[in-house]
Each structure stands twice: as C-alpha cells, then as structure tokens.
C-alpha cells in the first residue's frame, strides 16, 4: 500500500504537480493498479532471455540543423537565438 504522502512525493519527483483534493482519488486508484501488478510476483526471477539483437551504430557526422527561426517560433520566450528558461538556481 502506498500512502497519500508517497504519491505526493512521487508527484514531486516527476514534477507533475498534484492538487490536494485529487490526492485521495489518485492514491486509491494507484493502489488498485499496484495490487493488480502484484501478479508479477509469480514471475520467476532471472534474466530476461537475451534478444537476438545487435547494436546499430552510425558515424556521428555533423549535418545541417533545422532553421533557427522555425525552431524558435515554437518556444515561449527567446533572446539572441537562445530559448529562455526559468531560473534553475535561486
């Protein structure tokens, strides 16, 4: 069982924002889903079978990038060709 405090903590980690009035419902539904996930306890531990796959690599070659004005058009605020973001440090 996870508590409302746990859900609130996860919401904080995920930067998702959660209203106090939604917390009880989210927690109840969360627990119902986690109860269902408990069926995975019946899966024998071990390594997942190795897939018959190989890494696909390519040379890291510079190519023309997207036009700056088209990219900046989608951004909220920009200045001198840079996108503005909120302050990370207070």
């Amino acid at each position: 069982m996870v508590s409302e405090q746990d859900v609130s903590h996860i919401a904080e980690l995920a930067d998702i924002g959660i209203e106090a009035e939604d917390l009880a419902r989210f927690t109840r539904e969360f627990n119902a889903i986690l109860d269902y996930f408990d069926i995975l306890d019946q899966v024998k531990s071990g390594e997942p079978p190795a897939p018959d796959l190989v890494n696909i690599l390519r040379e890291d070659e510079p190519e023309p990038s997207l036009p700056l004005d088209e990219v900046l058009r989608n951004a909220g605020e920009s200045e001198d060709g840079f996108i503005k973001a909120p302050k990370v440090m207070q």
Binding site: D15, I16, V71, N74, I83, A85, P86, Q90
Partner: peptide, 27 residues
C-alpha cells in the same frame, strides 16, 4: 519529461523558479 513548456507548447513563466514553473505547466 521533455514537455516542460520551454521549447514548445504553451509557454512557462520564466520568472518563476524551475520546479514551480515546470509543475504549473504540467499540471
């Protein structure tokens, strides 16, 4: 996690702190 309101979509308030802005737009 890439949907932060900075590069695309409705803009975040850049005056807010990072986490506050990020949480507000995602909420």
């Amino acid at each position: 996690a890439r949907f932060d309101g900075i590069r695309y979509g409705p803009a975040v308030g850049t005056k807010k702190s990072w986490h506050e802005a990020f949480q507000d737009i995602r909420k």
